[in-house]
């Protein structure tokens, strides 16, 4: 989980794509997943997600993300199947409509979340911020906020691990099988995590200020992000994905 959002160095075609193209493809996959109402097409989109991971040379990462999402998906599937009461009962209190709806919800969740995590695995955070500023003309402070928030996720996870370890050393039994008790034990830990987050954010803000954060404009970055033929091919592929979602 800790390295889920970390960049994996590489020189694959996916790595070399313009960061804006990667964001565009991610958005397109998300939009296509919400447009389509067909399970086969959602499965096709899932294959596209995995295909991107394999093409980028990060299959383990892609499968790791899928595995992580499957845990949430199982919970969501059962919940959704129990809530939808329409249709013909097929097993216990589950109905055919409930199972189909639950499958679609779960597949959408996986299809949407996977490329969001994958784009961070194949794009340097600094490239993402610079490309957003240069190509999409996003004000630097928003790009910085976005990328800093992403960069902080593994650090917060590490921090939470440290806090839980410290509390375990004091006798707090986090290994309890009772989920509600575990939640109750974890809630007080939000205070130290919040305090450390605020302190870290303050330190980052000061460090950015003293290095001329407010002086930075679109012209400040020296690295250029031109569009290559591969980017155009991906854009074309994106159009086909949307068309497929609408027509199939």
């Amino acid at each position: 989980m800790r390295d889920l959002f970390q960049y994996v160095p590489g020189n694959s075609l996916i790595h070399r794509l313009n960061p804006v193209t990667k964001i565009f493809l991610t958005v397109v996959i998300c939009v296509a997943a919400f447009i389509t109402d067909r399970i086969p097409y959602l499965l096709f989109l899932l294959c596209v997600d995995l295909g991107i991971g394999f093409a980028a040379g990060v299959p383990r990462k892609a499968l790791g993300i899928l595995k992580g999402l499957l845990r949430i998906a199982v919970f969501l599937f059962v919940l959704q199947a129990l809530v939808v009461r329409r249709g013909t009962p097929v097993f216990w209190i589950f109905t055919d409509t409930g199972l189909v709806t639950a499958s679609k919800v779960v597949l959408r969740l996986i299809v949407v979340c996977m490329p969001l995590a994958m784009v961070l695995a194949v794009t340097r955070i600094s490239d993402l911020a610079n490309a957003l500023v240069q190509v999409l003309h996003l004000p630097y402070k928003y790009a910085f906020t976005l990328t800093t928030a992403i960069r902080f996720i593994p650090q917060f996870l590490e921090e939470m691990g440290g806090i839980m370890e410290a509390q375990t050393a004091r006798g707090v039994e986090f290994d309890t099988k009772n989920a509600f008790r575990k939640l109750g034990l974890m809630l007080p830990l939000c205070a130290p995590l919040l305090i450390s987050s605020v302190r870290r954010s303050e330190a980052t803000a000061v460090a950015a200020e003293v290095r001329g954060f407010r002086l930075r404009t679109r012209a400040s970055g020296y690295k250029q992000y031109p569009f290559a033929p591969a980017d155009l091919a991906v854009l074309l592929f994106s159009v086909l994905l949307i068309a497929g979602a609408v027509l199939i």
């Binding site: 375990t168 050393a169 004091r170 830990l189």
Partner: peptide, 24 residues
């Protein structure tokens, strides 16, 4: 050994006190 039993025997002072402090 159970966590609570071990914590009774061994105390651990971490480098960063902010990881340990959790009350108001």
């Amino acid at each position: 050994t159970r966590v609570s039993e071990r914590a009774r025997q061994v105390g651990f002072l971490f480098q960063n006190p902010d990881q340990q402090i959790c009350r108001n």
